[in-house]
Design a protein around this nucleic acid. Structure first.
Lengths: 162, 162
DNA sequence: ACAAGATAGTCTGTAAAGCAGAACATCTAG
DNA sequence: CTAGATGTTCTGCTTTACAGACTATCTTGT
């Protein structure tokens, strides 16, 4: 029988709390944007071009493909993105930002950055960078040597290619 | 106009992905436990004694008090916790673990630890500890000098005492 | 001691959020 | 050319949890 852990030693607890806090902050920052914080993430994902079909974005963000549909409906309705037929695959739609979308994204980027720094205030600047980097590597499933370990990605979607 | 960020540089994106992955893993580990991963957290919170009334636990876990009611209904129904009148305040209930509850908690602690290590596999051991520590400090709102900066706690619930 | 307001817990209704499954179009492999 | 896989959308349903009201109790001020 192992020693019972304290709650505040629980990774899940800390993750949940920090994520919830971040979500709460982001909600205010992006207020008015269709889809809230996730709407922002869609814009960001669509903007960096690597992934641009609906399904690719959905997988990257961890949302269901049916959810993606109405998320994009709203963003498109707001004039921030366009659905264009993919020339290489006529089933798929490429999501591209409109000029307004790019502008909005930049604006939100800046404000989110500020808000995040406030959120990370209890940590020293170097520690903030460390945290960002560690989380980024976990989220992308990249080991310290650059190897793709892909744990997190696996957990998120077994169907995801690794 | 600032440079548009890549998605994988976004803290919210990384947090979301890692949290979702953790949740997914935890879901399997605690399968059968009423309330899922949150049920575990309730047990853990109740067990370390510091906070033991329903509302205190609810605030610590970031769940609504009305949710706490049925969460505890289920845990109590499973014979894992008991609601005892608080001798100091007859409005409040102290949540205490039964023998079965403590046993279950220890078991789950062990298995969750294992699962988390698998999740953190892409990081080196030292990095895993760093990540845990940084998240813990953020979640508790504790600065590097031990000062209570309380950013995250604020964001979670403005009503929370700091 | 008593009234007024705050707080702990519970209950009810309702709104939202998202998933399963089917439908349709298109791609890929054999 | 057929069979199965994949991208997107739509429908219906289940889950979920929040807002608000209600009861019981505590606290504070007079």
């Amino acid at each position: 029988m192992t020693t019972p852990q304290r709650v505040d030693a629980d990774l899940g607890w800390a993750l949940g709390r920090v994520t919830r806090a971040h979500l709460h902050t982001a909600q205010e920052v992006v207020s008015g944007l269709p889809g809230g914080p996730r709407g922002y993430q869609v814009l960001a994902a669509a903007n960096d071009g690597e992934v641009s079909t609906q399904l690719a974005i959905a997988r990257m963000l961890g949302v269901d493909r049916t959810v993606m549909t109405y998320l994009l409906d709203e963003l498109e309705g707001a004039g921030l993105v366009e659905r264009r037929p993919d020339p290489a695959d006529r089933r798929a739609r490429r999501i591209v930002l409109t000029a307004a979308g790019r502008e909005r994204l930049c604006e939100l980027d800046r404000r989110l950055r500020e808000a995040e720094e406030r959120l990370l205030a209890p940590l020293e600047p170097a520690e903030r960078d460390t945290l960002r980097e560690l989380l980024r590597r976990l989220a992308t499933g990249t080991g310290h040597d650059g190897a793709s370990a892909c744990r997190v990605a696996e957990e998120i979607s077994a169907a995801d290619g690794c």
